[in-house]
C-alpha cells in the first residue's frame, strides 16, 4: 500500500490557482497522470460500481463541467471526471491516495450541474467510506470524518469541542502546532458564547438510534453481498 506522506498532503492543501499566465489568460496545469502507457482493467471499476452510488460514474461523458464547478478545484489533484477515468483504467492506488474526494466539501455544485445526472458528491462520500474501510486514511479529512461520526453516534448530537479533540488526538501534536492560529478563533468563539465547553446531553433515544444504525449497516452489508 502506498502511503502519501503527510508533508505532501499538507502542501497540496495550499491553493496554487492559476499561477501560469499566457497573455491575458491564465491556466492551471493538472496533475500529470503517468508517462508510460496504461491498460484498461475494469476489475477495480467494478468494485467501485458496486458502491451505493458507484454505478453512476459509468455515465460520465467527459464533459469536464465538474472540474470547473468544484469549489476546491485549485487543490484537487484529479478532477472528478479524471478520477472516474482512473477508476475505469484500474488505477486503484492513484485513486485511493488522491486528495480528490477528501477535498470535496459537499457543496453540491457538481451534483446540481452534472449533465449526466451523476450525484458526484454522493460518489465522493462512497469513495471516502471505501478509502477509510481500506485504510487509506492519511489525509487529515479522514481523521476529521471519523471524529465527527464517533462523536455524533456516541451522543446523538454533535459536540464540536469533543470532535475537535478527537481529531487532534488522531492527527497528533504536529497538527496542533501548525494550527496554532486556531487558538485565536477558539478564544473569540468562547468570548462570544459560541463554544460550550460541556457537551450537549445525549439524546434520550440514543439506544434506539444505535439500533437503527447497526440495522442500517447490516442491511447495507446484506445488499452489497447480493
Amino acid at each position: 500500500m502506498v502511503t502519501p506522506d503527510k508533508e505532501r498532503a499538507a502542501e497540496q492543501a495550499v491553493p496554487h490557482s492559476f499561477k501560469k499566465k499566457r497573455g491575458d489568460n491564465y491556466f492551471m496545469e493538472q496533475k500529470k497522470i503517468f508517462s508510460e502507457p496504461v491498460k484498461y482493467d475494469l476489475t477495480f471499476a467494478r468494485e467501485i460500481y458496486r458502491l451505493e452510488n458507484g454505478s453512476y460514474i459509468k455515465q460520465c461523458m467527459n464533459c469536464g463541467l465538474c472540474t470547473v464547478s468544484c469549489a476546491t478545484r485549485d487543490v484537487m489533484e484529479y478532477p472528478p471526471r479524471q478520477l472516474f477515468n482512473l477508476i475505469k483504467l484500474g488505477k486503484k492506488e492513484e485513486v485511493l491516495t488522491s486528495n480528490t474526494f477528501w477535498s470535496c466539501t459537499s457543496c453540491c455544485t457538481c451534483k446540481a450541474r452534472c449533465p449526466r445526472g451523476i450525484p458526484i458528491i454522493d460518489v465522493m462520500h462512497d469513495l471516502k467510506k471505501y478509502a477509510i474501510e481500506y485504510g487509506y486514511t492519511d489525509y487529515p479529512q479522514a481523521a476529521f470524518y471519523k471524529a465527527f461520526w464517533t462523536e455524533m453516534s456516541s451522543r446523538g448530537k454533535m459536540f464540536e469541542g469533543g470532535m475537535t479533540a478527537r481529531y487532534f488526538l488522531t492527527r497528533g501534536l504536529d497538527e496542533i502546532v501548525k494550527a496554532m492560529d486556531m487558538k485565536d478563533v477558539g478564544i473569540s468563539m468562547l468570548k462570544h458564547g459560541r463554544m460550550p465547553l460541556l457537551p450537549p446531553k445525549k439524546i434520550k433515544g440514543l439506544g434506539g438510534l444505535k439500533k437503527i444504525i447497526s440495522k442500517a449497516q447490516e442491511l447495507d452489508r446484506k445488499e452489497a453481498a447480493r
Binding site: K32, I33, F34, P37, V38, K39, Y40, N62, R81, Q82, N85, L86, L89
Partner: peptide, 15 residues
C-alpha cells in the same frame, strides 16, 4: 490496441 487517450493525456495500451 495502442491509442491516445485524449481526455487523460496519456497513451493506452490495452490488450
Amino acid at each position: 490496441i495502442e491509442a491516445d487517450d485524449k481526455t487523460m493525456g496519456t497513451t493506452s495500451l490495452a490488450d
